[in-house]
Design a protein around this nucleic acid. Structure first.
Lengths: 144, 144
DNA sequence: CTGTATGCAAAAGCTTTGCAAACGT
DNA sequence: ACGTTTGCAAAGCTTTTGCATACAG
């Protein structure tokens, strides 16, 4: 789980360094299977002796490198998820917000189609499935 | 452009009312072809004699009804977009953030597949294409 | 009448910024 | 040495909340 060399290379590309704090931020987001809000991250990493300001700055940096990606929840709160290299999509549980990755999507055909219809040049897509994980599904029968 | 009866019905379903302020908020978001941040909306609607607090409350309400949907931009800022009834996806310009809608996506097959592999029960998906609109594409050759 | 909605203004939170010190190359 | 990074603490914003008033059914 240490793509740190990868991280380092990406940072160096911009003349930036891989510091312990940035590594801690990356590990924090990469180590959980759901997105986290900035304030959550700041709170959690305070224990690891990384100041809030640094967490905010590091997230912004990693985000601009495309290593973290902001996603808005149903509630409008932004959570950042670590993006691994390659083409990855998430299936997220609407109950506990846990997520699993999947790769296939077959959207390249759709992209061409929409491109032709709209006159846009399509660069990529965000796709996320949502549903209930095995643990949360049972609750649907009880509550509500 | 007046799905106000639709709006009204959805609100009544929860014992809520369609007030002039809520209508103004809806019109604001529905009337633009790109998402807007809460603070932008609050600023713009102040001119229409709707207080910030009311805007924030109305967006939350409409959002919980599924009529507005929060989306996070690359920069991590949340913008809300009005959602019309039906199955709609957006193609958004990474330059100016303008968007056009499209409907086809063919993801039902994928949903079944991922469902089978993961053990989740899939409820739906968020899909967004991004690219350059005809107006913004030219700049790519100039800058950077 | 009763419960919902609004505006105001204050309070609370989150995020950013300036600056001096520490660090890596 | 030099430019980058950090932490602190202050400043700046956005967003939320309490409460009294207005409104709709």
């Amino acid at each position: 789980m240490d793509d740190f060399s990868f991280l380092k290379a990406r940072l160096h590309g911009l003349g930036l360094r891989l510091t312990p704090q940035r590594e801690a931020v990356w590990r924090y987001f990469a180590g959980v299977d759901r997105g986290r809000a900035l304030s959550e991250a700041a709170g959690a990493l305070a224990a690891e002796s990384t100041s809030p300001a640094t967490v905010y700055r590091a997230v912004k940096t990693l985000s601009s490198l495309g290593l973290l990606r902001p996603r808005a929840g149903e509630d409008g709160e932004v959570r950042y998820v670590a993006v691994r290299p390659g083409h990855v999509h998430l299936l997220r549980c609407t109950g506990c917000d846990r997520a699993v990755e999947f790769h296939e999507c077959g959207l390249d055909v759709l992209e061409k189609l929409v491109e032709a219809k709209s006159g846009f040049s399509v660069q990529g897509h965000h796709l996320e499935l949502y549903g209930r994980c095995p643990d949360c599904a049972p609750f649907d029968k009880i509550s509500q």
